[in-house]
Design a protein around this nucleic acid. Structure first.
Length: 451
DNA sequence: TCTGGGGTCCTAGGACCC
DNA sequence: TCTGGGGTCCTAGGACCC
């Protein structure tokens, strides 16, 4: 029997998160920016309708922003992470067998869900998630992940669906495939779109009917998998147990470009310790460390992009040792006379810490360094990140992010919790709104002020 | 003035071995 | 003059995802 796969996807996730705690934003255009307030990474429907494109730098749409009073936010990843966790936990209540695919999406295995009307079941999920978390979601149901993506996309774009589209055993599946442009198929990016269009493969339906051999030759087995999935044969399985990462990157653009070796060294040291911390939290050790740096490709300045990978003598988890090799790698590639805009560190060849072969002679010191690193992790976990840092990462924070427009940490900081307004003049309204909340009618109308 | 960050998988080709 | 063939491992680069 065919599997029943659903994809639940939060609508305009970051923008919706901002809206949950600020009802004034209802029906207003909102955009959320990347690190350093650089590019637009999320838009509310109203902002999309104004023609603001994903990925466009803020300064390029400044006119539209001013003219239409678009609300602009720096990214507040702490808030989004917490909201994501709330949504996922709520979804697990309806379907225990889930794969959290990204911060705002999850695949669900509906096998064994007792329901003779999946569409109604999903509409109910949707209502509940909105009520419990304030986040609107859409749900697509199909036989494969790729088709569930298509169903979800259609549901999101067409309000008449009520936010849910069931394409599992749908007689008119091809109608939806014909209505889906090939570039909107999961797994088809810009390069393949260009190629496919050249051969008049324009829609998901065309791709579904393409020749297997041709697809495999030109788009590798990955492309062929996509084609099978469009035909309803599952090739991409549900991964309900989160796999540990095979590589970990920490990198950042400088708020302002710098020619200074010291700045670059400190950045590298900071990113090395951050990456190492992530790595230890998944109990892995790294076999390689890569350091990379680059100038600003958008500026007309002398360009220099380079990276250097170093194989570690023994896979390690110890930050001091990683710092030493990061420095060594940087020495290989650093050149004076360039304005550096971005630097980063990648740890790769990750393996479970238990598998590491210890070198007899230096095992003791490495062991000690690892233990010290883990103690530092614990302190930072308890007292806040970067309570204890390594001297090599400096204290000047030249690379500190610009986030001038950040919203409060509504859900994760006691000092920034929203406060329900209890002023006399508002009391009647507040009470009314609290009843709405309790009845689950509409979270957005709660009338509170941020103090 | 201002253009993100963090991942995965596949393949071709070179190095190396027998 | 004639210059194998098969296997494995590694890496760089290209494609994709959010």
């Amino acid at each position: 029997m065919a599997k029943i796969i659903a994809l639940a996807d939060c609508n305009n996730f970051y923008a919706s998160c901002e809206r949950v705690f600020n009802p004034k934003l209802k029906n207003k255009p909102i955009v959320v920016l990347s690190n350093n307030d650089g590019i637009i990474v999320a838009r509310s429907n109203e902002a999309k309708a104004l023609g603001i494109k994903m990925g466009s730098p803020l300064f390029k749409v400044q006119d539209i922003v001013r003219q239409h009073k678009v609300f602009v936010f720096s990214s507040n990843y702490t808030l989004y992470g917490d909201m994501s966790h709330r949504v996922m936990t709520a979804l697990e209540h309806f379907c225990p067998d889930v794969e959290i695919y990204s911060v705002d999406e999850c695949f669900m295995n509906f096998d064994g869900i007792e329901s003779n009307n999946l569409t109604a079941y999903c509409k109910n999920i949707r209502t509940n998630i909105k009520q419990w978390t304030g986040i609107p979601i859409s749900i697509g149901i199909a036989k494969t992940k790729t088709l569930a993506k298509i169903a979800n996309r259609y549901a999101k774009k067409n309000p008449s669906t009520g936010g849910v589209l069931n394409l599992f055993e749908a007689d008119d599946l091809d109608v939806y495939l014909k209505a889906t442009a090939v570039e909107d198929v999961w797994g088809v990016g810009p390069a393949y779109t260009k190629f496919l269009k050249r051969y008049n493969v324009l829609t998901a339906f065309d791709l579904k009917n393409a020749n297997n051999k041709w697809i495999k030759k030109r788009m590798t087995v990955m492309g062929l998998r996509t084609v099978y999935e469009l035909r309803g044969t599952p090739c991409i399985s549900l991964e309900t147990a989160p796999a540990s990462k095979k590589s970990i990157v920490s990198s950042r653009s400088f708020g302002r470009s710098t020619p200074s070796r010291k700045d670059v060294e400190e950045g590298i040291a900071l990113f090395t310790s951050r990456a190492a911390e992530k790595m230890r939290s998944q109990k892995s050790a790294a076999a390689y460390i890569t350091v990379f740096l680059r100038t600003n490709p958008f500026k007309e300045v002398p360009q220099y992009h380079n990276g250097c990978m170093v194989r570690l003598p023994v896979p390690t988890q110890a930050t001091p040792e990683l710092l030493k090799f990061a420095k060594r790698a940087l020495d290989q590639i650093f050149r004076d006379g360039f304005l550096y805009n971005k630097v980063g560190v990648m740890l790769s060849g990750l393996m479970p810490e238990r598998k590491v072969q210890l070198d007899f002679f230096d095992a003791e010191q490495r062991q000690r360094q690892t233990e010290i690193s883990k103690v530092v992790d614990q302190i930072n976990d308890t007292y806040g990140s970067e309570t204890v840092t390594y001297a090599a990462s400096g204290v000047r924070r030249r690379w500190a992010m610009r986030r001038d427009l950040k919203s409060p940490h509504y859900t994760t900081s006691w000092d920034e919790l929203p406060v329900v307004s209890a002023g006399l003049e508002d009391r009647e309204q507040s009470t009314l709104d609290m009843e709405h909340l309790i009845n689950g009618e509409d979270l957005d109308v709660i009338n509170f002020e941020i103090l």
